[in-house]
């Protein structure tokens, strides 16, 4: 019940935000928060719930972004048509990366994901068909509404809000299913989970593929909003790091953790960029580095876990004298 009230409040704020704070900067900021919240929530499925820290998630983001822009640049179709293709490629790639690496210990998986992402960035940078270093552009002037090319950030804001809601709903549904229980168990003790019949490798792989699909959608939305993609904005390692840090800061493995993380970090970054211009990028790196250190040192569960921990039943009395 309390959860439901909280949910309604958050939803109401989210719906009202761009109408109350309606300057173009504020609306754009809102849209960006939601966009990164989608990507970070997608990462959360495998990085938070399954505990498999993917550091190369941008590769799926890039699949979506390039598929959306490619659909226009190469075939003259609406970027929307690229979305399913992007999902298929991302999920296929996740399977190819995941099958050999997810059965290894977590570190191998993390390293493999970085390697794949960087390799992909180099390949794309050197592939003329994908625009090489220049990248691909979307429609400069929208031909019709299906091009999803708007001047105002407002339509993007609501589009992203709907997609975020879908992402969070499916995540929530997953956590309440057998798969979600298995993921949590595997995260705590893979050995015990397997001894109880949980197919660990397969479950992690499914989570990874699901996560890849949503990340790909986030990439497609990003490219649609900005109207172009290049190797840096679509496949750059910084995006992987951002996604990861947002989820970790807000609370990995918590449904609304990534949203909280995005709502804190995106404004910080946008404001520092607008104050400092190009030099802001360097500051962003410093900021992220500092956040990583702080999370690792003080709050491994992320900010949201400060609340959930307090609300959990506190009475441990008697529990230690179990029969």
């Amino acid at each position: 019940m309390r959860r439901l009230i909280w949910l309604s409040v958050v939803a109401a704020i989210a719906i009202a935000y761009p109408l109350l704070l309606s300057s173009p900067f504020q609306q754009r900021l809102g849209a960006l928060v939601l966009l990164y919240a989608i990507a970070a929530s997608a990462w959360n499925i495998v990085g938070g719930y399954a505990g498999q820290v993917s550091v190369g998630h941008v590769v799926f983001f890039g699949c979506g972004a390039y598929a959306a822009m490619g659909s226009y640049a190469k075939f003259g179709l609406s970027p929307l048509f690229g979305v399913p293709g992007g999902i298929v490629i991302a999920v296929g790639l996740a399977a190819i990366i995941g099958v050999p690496t997810l059965r290894l210990s977590g570190h191998y998986f993390s390293m493999a994901t970085i390697a794949v992402a960087e390799t992909m960035r180099l390949i794309v940078t050197n592939t003329d068909w994908l625009g090489a270093a220049v990248g691909l552009s979307g429609p400069t002037v929208p031909r019709n509404i299906f091009d999803l090319s708007f001047l105002s950030s407002l339509p993007y804001y609501y589009l992203f809000l709907v997609i975020l809601a879908v992402t969070l709903f499916i995540t929530w549904w997953m956590t309440n299913s057998r798969m979600g229980f298995y993921l949590r168990a595997i995260k705590d003790s893979e050995r015990a989970a397997r001894s109880l019949g949980a197919p660990a490798s397969r479950t992690k792989l499914y989570a990874y593929m699901l996560s890849a699909a949503f990340t790909s959608v986030a990439g497609a939305l990003y490219a649609m909003m900005f109207g172009f993609v290049d190797p840096e904005s679509g496949l750059g390692i910084l995006i992987s790091v951002k996604i990861l840090i947002m989820a970790a800061l807000g609370g990995a493995g918590l449904l609304f953790g990534p949203l909280v993380g995005a709502a804190i970090l995106v404004p910080l970054e946008e404001i520092s960029n607008s104050w400092l211009g190009g030099r802001g990028a360097g500051l962003t790196f410093v900021l992220y580095g500092a956040i990583i250190v702080l999370i690792a040192r003080f709050q491994p569960g992320g900010l949201l876990s400060l609340f959930t921990r307090r609300r959990k039943p506190t009475s441990d009395t008697g529990a230690s004298h179990a029969p």
Partner: peptide, 10 residues
């Protein structure tokens, strides 16, 4: 109860 609150016998 949270499982982490259990002692060895539990």
């Amino acid at each position: 109860a949270p499982a982490r609150s259990l002692g060895t016998p539990g």
